[in-house]
Simulated assay, not measured.
Amino acid sequence: MNNRIIMTFLALAVFAVGLSGCSKPEPVERNATQFDLILTDDANQDIATYVLPQDTAILEEPNADQIFYGKRLLNETKRLLPDHVGAAMNCNSCHIAQGKIPLGDPYINSFTTYPRVMPRSNTLVDLEGRINGCFQRSMNGKPLDRESAEMAAMIAYMKWLSQKTPANSKVNISNAGKVDTSLIPDSIRGQVIYHAQCATCHGDNGEGIKDSRGDIVFPPLWGDESFNIGAGMARTYKAAAFVKYNMPMGIQTQGLWGHGNVLSDQDAVDVSEYFTHMPRPDFPAIVNDWPKGNMPKDAR
């Protein structure tokens, strides 16, 4: 029986998640300083706790240098891997707070989720392949050597973030929120919302913001330096789910990011329809997507 992992975030906020549909057992006394992860074979029990690790804990790992390098690569992808990133994007432009928070495309389950069959390609994809897919689509760039030190470092960071979650198990955390996909997008209204809510960070013309050294502060949402049409973020409803729960920044007073829950579903769909359909790089290999059909209605 696969174990399910229940997470508790002990950073700036605590998210306690119970097992749905199961009666709550009597609390078990545990030595929190001794155990980071507690498991049992009985899925009907309170089987485990995931503790979001502090980055300083990386120092305790035997491959600390490799994990720190992976962390840097995910934060500074464009600067450190310019030959592989065509867009003005970093991996963590979309994986919020270094891939650590719910609904912000976290990396927490990445190491244990792959390999798996991806509907878009209808093929079995391992974690190296998934990362390279992002380099080619979201980064509008070139894949890494699967055996490279850079690939190994990024995977080492994701493995560390999984905190020894057993194979075929997952931390109970959602990668993305949901929006009403029956809503009809209105790009004209979306343009108004963009300039009211998004342009401060992403620019009046979607160009993003760079610092004085030319490093990315906020990524471009369209144009030659943005993600290409093969990226998931180029799809209206997929982008809307990200926007609704993660943008605009700095609005809330709780959580790691201060993110999301400002726009309604309709707002998010409208603004996403606007910026996703602005000019951006092509991705010729998109013709091979969804070979078995079942193409989402917002697929480019």
Rank of each mutant, 00 (worst) to 15 (best):
A268W: 03
C134G: 10
V85G: 04
R30Q: 10
F68Q: 09
Y107T: 11
F283I: 07
Y157M: 11
S138H: 07
I173W: 00
A268S: 15
N2F: 04
G141E: 01
S148Q: 11
N168G: 09
S20P: 15
G104Y: 00
V192H: 04
Q254V: 15
G250W: 02
L144H: 03
L161H: 00
A153I: 08
N246V: 07
G250V: 09
A299L: 04
I193Q: 02
L81D: 07
K178E: 10
N92C: 10
P25D: 11
L12S: 06
N122D: 15
T253C: 03
K142C: 02
G208K: 04
K292G: 11
F9A: 06
M7I: 12
P185G: 07
H84M: 05
I173D: 00
D36W: 02
R120W: 02
G206K: 00
G99F: 05
W290C: 07
V217G: 09
H195R: 13
L52A: 08
V287K: 15
L103R: 07
W222R: 00
V262Q: 12
F218H: 10
D41R: 04
M139R: 01
N288I: 01
G206D: 00
T56H: 11
A13Y: 04
K292T: 15
I216R: 05
C91R: 00
A156G: 08
C91G: 05
V179M: 03
A149F: 02
F68S: 08
A239I: 04
G232A: 13
N246C: 10
D270R: 08
L52Q: 11
Q66S: 02
N75D: 12
G293K: 04
P296E: 05
Y245M: 11
M89C: 02
S162Q: 02
L74W: 01
I209D: 02
N294R: 10
R146E: 02
G260C: 04
V14R: 08
N172H: 05
A285L: 11
D126I: 06
P279I: 10
I286V: 14
T276F: 01
C201P: 03
R30E: 10
F135M: 15
T56R: 15
T165Y: 00
V217E: 12
M278Q: 14
S162F: 01
M1C: 09
P106Q: 06
S169Y: 05
N3Q: 11
Q163P: 02
N3M: 10
F218C: 05
G21F: 14
F68C: 04
N90L: 03
D42R: 04
V287P: 01
Y157H: 10
V217P: 02
P220I: 01
D282T: 07
P166K: 05
I251F: 09
C91Q: 01
S264D: 10
K24S: 13
S23D: 15
R79C: 00
F68P: 01
S162E: 00
F242E: 12
L74T: 03
D289N: 14
I67T: 06
I38Y: 03
E273W: 02
E26T: 15
N90S: 03
M247D: 08
I67K: 00
C198L: 06
D36E: 11
D265R: 09
Y50H: 03
I108D: 04
L221M: 13
A299R: 07
W290V: 10
T113M: 12
H95M: 05
C22A: 15
Y107P: 08
Q197P: 00
S121T: 15
K210E: 13
T8S: 13
E26S: 14
V125Q: 14
I67N: 01
I251Q: 13
L52D: 09
